Amino acid sequence: MLTRRHVLASALAAPAVLRMGTGTAHAATTLKISHQFPGGSIDKGDFRDRLCRMFAAEIAKRSGGELAAEVYPNSSLIKTNAQFSAMRKGALDLSLYPMPYAGGELPETNIGLMPGLVTTYDQGMRWKKEPVGKALSDFLADKGILLISWVWQAGGVASRSRAIVAPEDAKGMKVRGGSREMDMVLQTAGAAVLSVPSNELYAAMQTGACDAGITSSTSLISFRLEEIAKSLTSGAGASYWFMLEPLMMSKAIFDKLPKNQQDVILAVGGELEAFGRKGAQDDDAEVAKIYEKAGAKVAALDGAVVAKWRDIARDTAWKDYGAKTATAANLLKLASDVTA
């Protein structure tokens, strides 16, 4: 298994390894990894960026320099919403990508943010080895996408005004939910909805176009929403909002690689899932401290409140999603079988 010391050692070795492609018998295959989140280093910053950098360093080390990878944060290589389609076409190698952002292209991917369907990390992480994980992986592979690292993140709400804890609190507010299904739940609760990627949430809240945003704890931190928020609802103890945000790879690119390199990618991806979970849970705890320090009032969710949101979701979003396609109906059934 990967340890932090192991990965840091790999990172230190990586610059020398990455140069092996110039003037040696074989050139390295350099993979491009794009994501929308702030860039940092392998040791500091948004854990999603760090995961990508750890992945790059480790595949370079384990492949003996046959593989290399470059990380492009802040959607600097490809715009946020275009990354999924680019991977499907083989125009982008990898992305750490919020799965429901692909919902406009493949509505089935909205299973990755179905309100109230996943309420704990244990439940979400079990998907990978349960029938729902195989069904989702098979569906995506058929559409040209491979799941390399399964990453789940709990979410909370940052608000410019009053806190949104229970569904009735959302009435009359303009809220960013993060998926079509979350938007349906918010609208049923009486809110107006806004559809923007999380990296555009700061500007939307700053201008007043959006009153509140629901997003992962990590994004609540990385996009500095505490600077404009007066209230935070934390999802650290319980949440109706869990986002599947995996490291994905273009199947067309993966299939062109020799088996030994494919094996390295899959092994490293699987091992980094523990780091992803710890990063998400650490940020669930950290976000409340950051917002309190900035002067925001912090509220928490509990099981009873989560159940209220889930009840609305089951009658609206779940029904709507399940009626989309036979695949969606099957995914919803299989996911419902994985209990909290």
Rank of each mutant, 00 (worst) to 15 (best):
D211A: 00
K251F: 05
Y72V: 08
T339N: 15
G269S: 13
P115H: 05
K32L: 15
N199L: 03
T218D: 14
T325L: 05
S161K: 14
S336A: 12
P258Q: 13
M243R: 11
V264L: 05
A69W: 06
T218E: 11
D46C: 13
T119I: 14
L117S: 01
K256G: 04
V157Q: 01
G133M: 04
A170W: 02
G156N: 08
T119R: 10
L117N: 01
D311T: 14
E227H: 13
V151M: 10
Y97M: 02
A252N: 08
A158S: 07
A323K: 14
H26E: 13
L31E: 13
K89T: 13
A294V: 09
A135L: 10
W318I: 01
Q153V: 14
D284H: 15
G133I: 03
Q153Y: 13
A294K: 13
G39Q: 00
A68M: 06
V305P: 12
S41T: 13
G279S: 11
P38T: 04
S179C: 11
K32E: 11
A252L: 12
G90A: 08
F223N: 00
P167Y: 02
L12D: 12
S149Y: 01
D255T: 07
A212K: 01
D311M: 10
A252E: 09
S231E: 02
R176F: 00
S34V: 05
V185P: 12
D211T: 04
Q83W: 08
G172W: 00
A13N: 11
I290P: 12
I221W: 09
H6Q: 13
K171M: 11
A317M: 10
A329N: 06
A82C: 09
R62H: 15
A296T: 06
T120F: 14
D183S: 05
A158Q: 03
G190M: 02
S149A: 08
V151A: 09
A14M: 10
I253F: 10
G103V: 12
R5E: 09
V118N: 07
V193S: 02
K293H: 14
E292L: 15
W152Q: 05
T119E: 04
K61Y: 07
R126C: 06
E70T: 14
S250P: 01
D142L: 15
P38E: 00
A57M: 07
I228N: 02
A11E: 09
L232S: 03
D46W: 04
E66A: 08
G133R: 03
S198V: 12
K61L: 10
T339K: 15
A56F: 10
S149E: 02
I221R: 12
A229D: 03
L272I: 05
D283W: 11
I111N: 02
L31Q: 09
I265W: 02
G64R: 07
K308I: 08
G40L: 04
S198D: 04
A11M: 05
D263N: 12
T29G: 01
D46Y: 06
L332F: 12
M184P: 15
G190A: 00
M20I: 15
V132S: 06
V193Q: 04
G39A: 04
Q123H: 11
A340I: 09
E227A: 14
P131A: 00
D282V: 08
A296M: 10
G295W: 13
W241T: 01
Q187M: 11
L186Q: 08
